[in-house]
Amino acid sequence: MTVEQVTLNELEHDALTEIVNIGVSRAAASLRKMIGDQVLLSVPSIEVVSQSRAARLISEREVVDLIAVRQDFAGPFSGRALLIFPETNSLELVRAVTGGELSVEEVAEMEVEALAETGNVILNSCLATMANMLKRSLTMTIPQVLRGNGATLFEVDSEAQTEGLVLFLYIDFSVRMRDIRGYIAMLMDIPSLATLKELLDEFIARVVGDDA
């Protein structure tokens, strides 16, 4: 199976954008409850790209080191979900989550725990909504916090003969009056992407059937 066979057509792309948009809106609502501040979102931009291209897309936007929360998911389609921030944003996010009343040292101590919890809330909301709208269910692992650049986060292996694909969701989310932005990416192999494409076609048929 080739990359071309899992490339989304316009209808599938629009359906996935709509599903992700709902998922991320729910994630933002959960985050808003955690921090008590408005969370603003851009419309998701979705591309299926190679791991090295995804790493490049992040590196073009962010020159600083990155921090990510990673959760693996399994079900009809499997993969790895990443919530990625510029590292300079991460302490600001922790400060927002913890109410802004901690010292710099306390914020640094709580950083990994608070980021893991934030990532868990956002990724779970997003993936659970996607699975639910596609009438499937997914299981997710415990979140892990990673640091590195685009190449390490997307596991770009210069020795590898073949490269995996990334469903790259670029979503700007910002917390009111704070410099916090992030990206969501899903690493999926070609069989999983092919399954996702089939499920999107089923979803489209249901929606079109309802509208007919």
Rank of each mutant, 00 (worst) to 15 (best):
residue 29 A to W: 01
residue 167 L to C: 02
residue 167 L to P: 00
residue 91 L to Q: 09
residue 135 K to M: 15
residue 45 S to P: 05
residue 137 S to V: 15
residue 82 L to C: 03
residue 107 V to P: 00
residue 85 F to Q: 04
residue 168 F to D: 01
residue 100 G to S: 13
residue 159 E to Q: 13
residue 106 E to F: 07
residue 95 R to M: 06
residue 114 A to N: 02
residue 51 Q to C: 11
residue 208 V to Q: 09
residue 3 V to T: 14
residue 53 R to H: 11
residue 167 L to T: 03
residue 11 L to K: 13
residue 36 G to K: 10
residue 108 A to V: 14
residue 166 V to K: 00
residue 133 M to Y: 02
residue 165 L to T: 02
residue 123 L to R: 05
residue 197 K to S: 09
residue 155 E to N: 11
residue 34 M to R: 09
residue 183 Y to G: 15
residue 169 L to S: 05
residue 14 D to Q: 09
residue 41 L to C: 08
residue 178 R to W: 14
residue 90 S to Q: 08
residue 27 A to H: 11
residue 188 M to H: 07
residue 199 L to A: 03
residue 202 E to A: 13
residue 39 V to C: 04
residue 176 R to G: 12
residue 87 E to F: 09
residue 54 A to H: 03
residue 144 Q to R: 09
residue 59 S to K: 10
residue 126 C to A: 13
residue 5 Q to D: 12
residue 76 P to S: 14
residue 155 E to T: 11
residue 32 R to W: 15
residue 168 F to I: 10
residue 112 V to L: 15
residue 64 V to I: 14
residue 149 N to F: 03
residue 29 A to K: 12
residue 205 A to V: 10
residue 202 E to Q: 14
residue 191 P to F: 10
residue 5 Q to R: 13
residue 33 K to L: 14
residue 84 I to K: 00
residue 171 I to R: 01
residue 92 E to N: 15
residue 23 G to R: 04
residue 60 E to K: 07
residue 207 V to E: 03
residue 134 L to I: 06
residue 115 L to K: 04
residue 89 N to F: 10
residue 96 A to P: 05
residue 64 V to H: 13
